[in-house]
Design a protein around this nucleic acid. Structure first.
Lengths: 119, 119
DNA sequence: TGGATACCTGCGCAGATGTGCAGCTATGCA
DNA sequence: TGCATAGCTGCACATCTGCGCAGGTATCCA
């Protein structure tokens, strides 16, 4: 397969066929970006702590998450807003309390990796 | 278990015991930070593309990675320096060519997740 | 020995991101 | 009806990080 885009076709390569293999391996740029965005959501220690707590403990209220992680309420709220916008978590309102839980299966799989490490 | 640190013991909670469960689930802060750092390495589209290419294609030279990803050589070099410092990749010198490969098993596991998605 | 190649590094800038503070809305209870 | 609580939002700040450019080092070949 010759997948090298025209704008890079003239650049020197060490192993030309491996370059094509690499391009095929990378695949769709949008797909890579989607995964990078997903990883970015887990790249913040506070946000990751929230997700681990939700993943292993189950639905939790915002203020409880704040106490468990040592964060301020607005910080937790903002983090959850980000995760909610990305479709990673969902909140269920019960009176004035909102309990969040992890709903994205991909992220759940990644969180299992952390848990399997012995955390 | 009562794991709530003293400095937060007076804060109101919705479900006190679930807060303790959450703290136990989060576990060691250093452990969470280590995983967050690991995720951060995968959070950049260019860096993730490099890792996917290395993971699925095998050892690749710097300039080949540059062509495959459309990055400049210094950008690739800098990304690899970061990954090398984190122990994620290793380079093997062969004359004036350096071929890199992924050596961190945790990151390899995460990359399998991306691959399994159909990328 | 001279030139070209493959890779690495330092510097500076633009863009993105996490954080704290103040204020707002909505719900529950007396 | 009035007050306290749970949660959300906007704004401004400091910080970080990826990127391109210029220059340096090491290796190979003629």
């Amino acid at each position: 397969m010759h997948l090298v885009p025209a704008d890079r076709a003239d650049r020197r390569t060490i192993d030309g066929h491996r370059v094509c293999d690499a391009i095929a391996a990378i695949g769709d740029a949008g797909h890579v970006r989607a995964w990078a965005d997903r990883f970015a959501l887990l790249a913040d220690p506070k946000r990751l702590a929230l997700l681990i707590a939700l993943h292993r403990t189950g639905p939790l209220a915002v203020s409880d998450l704040a106490v468990a992680t040592g964060m301020n309420d607005p910080a937790v709220s903002q983090a959850l807003r980000l995760l909610r916008a990305a479709g990673v978590v969902e909140g269920e309102k019960e009176g004035r309390i909102v309990r969040y839980r992890v709903v994205d299966p991909d992220v759940q799989g990644l969180l299992k990796h952390c848990a399997a490490d012995g955390g």
